[in-house]
């Protein structure tokens, strides 16, 4: 077992983990961050996307031990629920989700994307979300949502 200490959504969590434990499973099973979900075993779907030290990563492709000392933000850490992150607002406004399973990862990727490029073109949005699969929306309204979020965050033209 390895001892780790990780800041998750603003709170420091400590624990002992088996080295093979994936970060996503530690977040879900030990920290209780069940908003972050698992959709595949080949790092294609991106449903497990979180921010690690401020950048988007697939938490199924990081060992929990590798997150020792890191700061992690999950979908449950971007707003309190009473206040909404602009990306969350935009996804609701633009019907950017249906079943909602890809949504946590999609939102986290969108936050990363807009952090790097506050005013993305449609092509840049599509490329920026290429690591996240959605089977419900055909991406049309996800793209609209990210455009809307850029506007809400003050980046859009």
């Amino acid at each position: 077992m390895q001892h780790i200490s990780v800041n998750v959504d603003g709170t420091q969590y400590e624990g002992d983990v088996e080295p093979r434990t994936l970060l996503v499973h530690w977040l879900r099973n030990e920290v209780g961050k069940v908003g972050t979900v698992v959709g595949c075993d080949t790092s294609n779907c991106g449903a497990c996307t979180i921010l690690m030290n401020g950048r988007s990563v697939k938490s199924c492709s990081v060992l929990a031990v590798q997150a020792d000392g890191a700061s992690v933000t999950t979908i449950q850490g971007i707003s309190t629920g009473d206040d909404w992150h602009p990306v969350q607002t935009a996804f609701k406004e633009c019907h950017g989700l249906q079943c909602g399973y890809c949504t946590p990862g999609m939102v986290m990727s969108a936050i990363d994307l807009l952090g790097e490029n506050p005013n993305p073109s449609e092509a840049e949005i599509r490329e920026g979300l290429e690591g996240n699969l959605c089977r419900c929306t055909g991406y049309h309204n996800i793209v609209r949502s990210v455009e809307k979020a850029a506007e809400l965050m003050g980046g859009a033209k």
């Binding site: 961050k33 069940v34 908003g35 999950t74 629920g81 609701k92 989700l97 909602g100 949504t103 939102v107």
Partner: peptide, 10 residues
């Protein structure tokens, strides 16, 4: 439906 789905409270 969206509020809970967007906040991970699923």
């Amino acid at each position: 439906e969206d509020a809970k789905l967007l906040h991970g409270r699923t």
